[in-house]
Design a protein around this nucleic acid. Structure first.
Lengths: 143, 143
DNA sequence: TTATATAACAATAATGATTATCACTATGAA
DNA sequence: TTCATAGTGATAATCATTATTGTTATATAA
């Protein structure tokens, strides 16, 4: 009756797209998924990647992490954990759930503001270790 | 010497664009700012809005709240507070800082992961009061 | 006030990510 | 195998945003 019951046929490409996202720690964009699968599926089309990502998201197999530099990034780990985004290279990494606000905060927001909260997203922004976040030398003159 | 020292001339439009964002609780998009100012500045161009928003952001007068349905939304309140986004109507509202994770969490992320954290963003998603978030009737059949 | 340098402007073209269309193909059930 | 239709590649269209360009407004000095 509802949209969920649309019959889905099995698709090799959809499996591969889901795996590319779920088996990666990179939080790839649609374009990145496309590039990673193109060698294995030479006829793969970018539209197919977008279409299947959209289906996988509806089905709850993957979720979006938000956009980095205008490109949406995806995650196959559905747990409610924060992310770190490097503003230099665009890398997205998982952060332990330990750094999430307590779960009850969402309930408190709901009751205080009279809204229904279905999910939340916490993102830390900065500069990753590779790009020079920590190794104390060479002050970043390039801003 | 650096990019900050580019000479800026005074501009009525830039003032109006900054005010449109800072005096609003709507977290408007560039398009929304354009629409709100068009009556007062009939010759206003959308490109001008984008260009000035970009300048205001560089200068630290406003900040981005992230994209909602592909449209970037802006905030004149620079304090580190969470937001709530209604997934039905796209409304963005401020949430009290009380619901932010403690500030030390950012430092802990930095030291644990070897990164530099410059800012963070916490967003709660769901359905706002107007769209039916709370008033317990009429189960949302339209999902 | 006029003159001059240039930041800001409107109009518009270009870009880049994403979505829609369509003729054809592959999947799954009979 | 046959059939209905979900899935696909190619490509066009859309939408937000950015860049370009010739003109206008602002700041400063004469």
């Amino acid at each position: 009756m509802n949209a969920r019951s649309i019959k889905r046929k099995h698709s090799r490409r959809r499996d591969a797209i889901a795996a590319a996202i779920c088996d990666s720690r990179e939080h790839p964009s649609a374009e990145a998924v496309y590039r990673s699968l193109k060698p294995r599926f030479p006829s793969l089309s970018l539209g197919t990647v977008y279409r299947n990502i959209s289906m996988l998201r509806e089905e709850g197999v993957i979720k979006s992490v938000g956009a980095v530099s205008g490109e949406e990034r995806f995650d196959g780990d559905l747990s409610d954990h924060p992310h770190f985004v490097c503003e230099r290279c665009g890398a997205v990494m998982d952060i332990s759930e330990d750094f999430s606000p307590r779960l009850s905060a969402a309930e408190e927001v709901a009751s205080r503001y009279g809204v229904a909260v279905t999910r939340r997203a916490l993102v830390y922004y900065g500069v990753c270790a590779v790009c020079g976040g920590i190794s104390g030398d060479a002050a970043p003159g390039g801003g």
